[in-house]
Simulated assay, not measured.
Amino acid sequence: MKNNSLSKLCAFTVLYVEDEDGIRNNIEEILKHLFKEVYSAKNCSEASIKYLQFKPDLIITDIRMGNETGIDFIKKIRQTDSKTRVIITSAYTDLEYLLKATELHLVKYIVKPITNDNLMEALELFVKSFDDNKIYTLTQNWFFDYTKSTVSNGNEDFLLTKKEAMFLKLLVSKNRIITYEELENSIWDDDSVMTANAMRLFIKNLRKKLPENFLKNVQGIGYYHDSKAIQDL
């Protein structure tokens, strides 16, 4: 059974780069059970195209692939992208490779063969690499990413407005009833008024982007969430 950290992988996408067909197919099959989307490539040229096309959250790449190296591939990405997480796999424990790899700000360097244990350890580090207070579990398979202002259920992403993201973070971080007064003072602009109709429309639109029955109302007081699963990442 996946632990709580690994269960959050279904909110992320991954690009897996490996030139050996057997290894690539086996690991890709494992990743498909964990991630929202899995993209694979058999060489650096193909990986570069898919990286630009899909902008994955995580890249897992082998170091040596024929005349190409995963290190060169990641170096090119790091010229413009410091945020995408990277895990490198390699049969080499050569100090030169290790030193080059440390310059790339990796999540993990996995020495082959890739086992279930060392893969899961690396993936858990990937999840934990995100700043706490930014990704929240709403219910099983539903996640709120405050940095991206999105709610994801593993199959679909819902883009939140600025007010919706602010309110949802307040709701899940406080883990209690958020009163109408708090809602107005914390979310509404100083130059606008939170009328009853505006609030009802706001909540109606937000509910469409959340798990069913997640957002509850206490009449005359405010709103709370109906979930026992919320935890900061």
Score class of each variant (00 low, 15 high):
Gly222Asn: 10
Pro56Lys: 01
Glu124Val: 03
Thr102Leu: 09
Ser5Arg: 05
Thr80Asp: 14
Arg64Val: 15
Lys2Glu: 14
Tyr180Asn: 11
Ile63Phe: 03
Asp190Ala: 07
Val151Trp: 01
Lys216Thr: 06
Lys50Tyr: 11
Lys134Asp: 12
Lys100Val: 04
Asp72Trp: 10
Tyr109His: 06
Thr13His: 07
Lys148Asp: 12
Ile187Leu: 00
Asn197Tyr: 15
Thr137Met: 00
Lys32Leu: 10
Ile63Ala: 00
Lys134Glu: 15
Gly220Phe: 11
Lys209Glu: 07
Ser186Arg: 10
His105Met: 08
Glu20Val: 07
Leu106Thr: 07
Phe130Gln: 09
Leu201Lys: 05
Asn197His: 13
Asp145Lys: 02
Leu159Ile: 07
Asp21Ser: 10
Thr179Asn: 12
Val193Asp: 15
Lys50Gly: 06
Lys55Cys: 13
Ala229Ser: 15
Phe158Arg: 00
Ala198Ser: 14
Arg207Ala: 05
Lys108Gly: 07
His105Pro: 00
Asp131Gln: 08
Asp21Phe: 12
Ile27Gly: 04
Thr150Arg: 05
Arg200Asn: 13
Asn185Arg: 09
Lys162Met: 03
Leu210Tyr: 03
Leu15Gly: 00
Asn133Met: 02
Asp19Cys: 05
Ile30Asp: 15
Lys2Leu: 12
Arg64Pro: 08
Val107Cys: 01
Arg24Pro: 13
Lys100Ser: 06
Leu31Lys: 07
Tyr180Glu: 13
Asp19Ser: 00
Asn217Val: 05
Glu182Ile: 08
Asp62Glu: 02
Met120Thr: 13
Asp131Lys: 05
Asp94Glu: 06
Lys216Pro: 01
Thr115Pro: 06
Ile71Tyr: 13
Asn116Glu: 15
Thr80Lys: 14
Thr115His: 08
His105Leu: 01
Ala41Asp: 08
Val107Leu: 04
Ile63Cys: 03
Cys44Tyr: 10
Gly220Gln: 11
Arg200His: 08
Gln231Arg: 12
Lys50Trp: 08
Leu106Asn: 04
Phe73Ile: 11
Leu170Asp: 13
Leu138Ile: 00
Glu121Ser: 12
Tyr92Glu: 03
Gly154Asn: 11
Met1Cys: 07
Leu123Gln: 09
Asn155Leu: 10
Met166His: 14
Thr195Cys: 12
Lys148Ile: 00
